[in-house]
């Protein structure tokens, strides 16, 4: 667009740059502030006396002999066993991604290659399922899971998250598969492959970008889930997000805000790294459904 328009007048450039800077502040500052504050004591991060205490760390200096302290991290990770939640999250995320992609690529491949009418109805059903808020399904899980002693285990939550993830995975992979010409598997079949061999040896190797993008979104869904993991996991199996919620305290139990601050920062760090490495794929995934429609 730039190449076609005349040079921006000065006031417009100032306006635009100002707006971009404002947005950058809005997007990034809350996170930077929380990272900074997580190394202070509660009296500094939530300062009644003077907000600049959060910058100088006056109370932190008094109690910890230094403007920064890792006390909140120590409390959350060691005392409250946030490390266990981190391991649980890792197990859940890796399993969900692997199983989702396995189920999803098989299903989406079939949907993209079959010309029968039922493929459309399957995709529509998946779309309807995609719209279901997960929390509405939770009430349906509890009774049977209690009856059959399935409640509380990581494996139960994993398979539930995989299922909730399937509609989205199917749609995204379906649109990636459709971009791969059908001649490719036809010629493989002429060479003597059966359908599965054509899928495995010919299509999947060219599908990697699509699989990685979809995998990222499956990962995010599992990583960020609160409703399912909070309701279906026993306390000792909690993943990071429900664990953070438990630091907040309820009307019955007292929470510890600084533990929550430290664990929020800890849980955001992996996402930060994820964007750093996969920015291009995330953007591709977001625009996938949109630009073609």
């Amino acid at each position: 667009m730039r190449t076609h328009s005349e040079k921006n007048p000065v006031h417009l450039s100032v306006l635009i740059n100002g707006f971009v800077i404002l947005w950058l502040l809005m997007a990034a500052f809350p996170f930077l502030w929380t990272v900074w504050g997580s190394f202070k004591v509660e009296l500094d991060f939530f300062s009644i006396a003077n907000w600049t205490n959060a910058l100088t760390g006056e109370n932190t200096q008094r109690t910890h002999e230094g403007a920064f302290t890792a006390a909140a991290y120590e409390g959350a990770w060691l005392q409250e066993e946030f490390w266990l939640a981190a391991i649980n999250t890792a197990i859940v995320c890796v399993s969900v991604v692997v199983i989702s992609l396995t189920f999803g690529t098989l299903g989406a491949y079939a949907l993209s290659r079959s010309t029968h009418k039922y493929t459309f109805w399957l995709l529509i059903t998946a779309l309807i399922f995609r719209a279901m808020p997960p929390v509405t399904l939770v009430a349906g899980y509890l009774l049977p899971f209690f009856e059959w002693n399935l409640w509380g285990h990581l494996s139960t939550s994993i398979i539930v998250l995989v299922a909730i993830n399937q509609p989205f995975t199917l749609w995204m992979l379906h649109s990636f598969f459709q971009k791969i010409p059908k001649d490719l598997d036809e010629s493989a079949k002429v060479d003597g492959c059966n359908q599965f061999q054509a899928f495995w040896h010919v299509i999947i190797p060219v599908m990697w970008p699509g699989v990685i993008t979809t995998g990222l979104f499956s990962f995010l869904l599992a990583y960020n889930d609160f409703a399912v993991t909070a309701m279906l996991l026993a306390k000792e199996n909690h993943t990071m997000v429900p664990k953070i919620a438990s630091f907040l305290g309820t009307t019955q139990t007292e929470g510890n805000v600084m533990f929550a601050v430290a664990s929020v920062v800890s849980a955001t760090a992996p996402l930060f790294i994820l964007i750093m490495f996969f920015q291009r794929q995330i953007v591709a995934g977001l625009t996938q459904g949109a630009v073609k429609g």
């Binding site: 189920f103 098989l106 299903g107 998946a126 279901m132 399904l137 349906g140 899980y141 909730i164 399937q166």
Partner: peptide, 26 residues
């Protein structure tokens, strides 16, 4: 149809058991 069925089975089964049936149960 036969090939299609085997390809779609895992994903369809997971959605049937953990999305469709919970809706009925709800």
């Amino acid at each position: 149809h036969r090939t299609f069925f085997w390809f779609i089975l895992p994903t369809a089964l997971s959605m049937l058991v953990f999305i469709a049936m919970p809706i009925v149960s709800v």
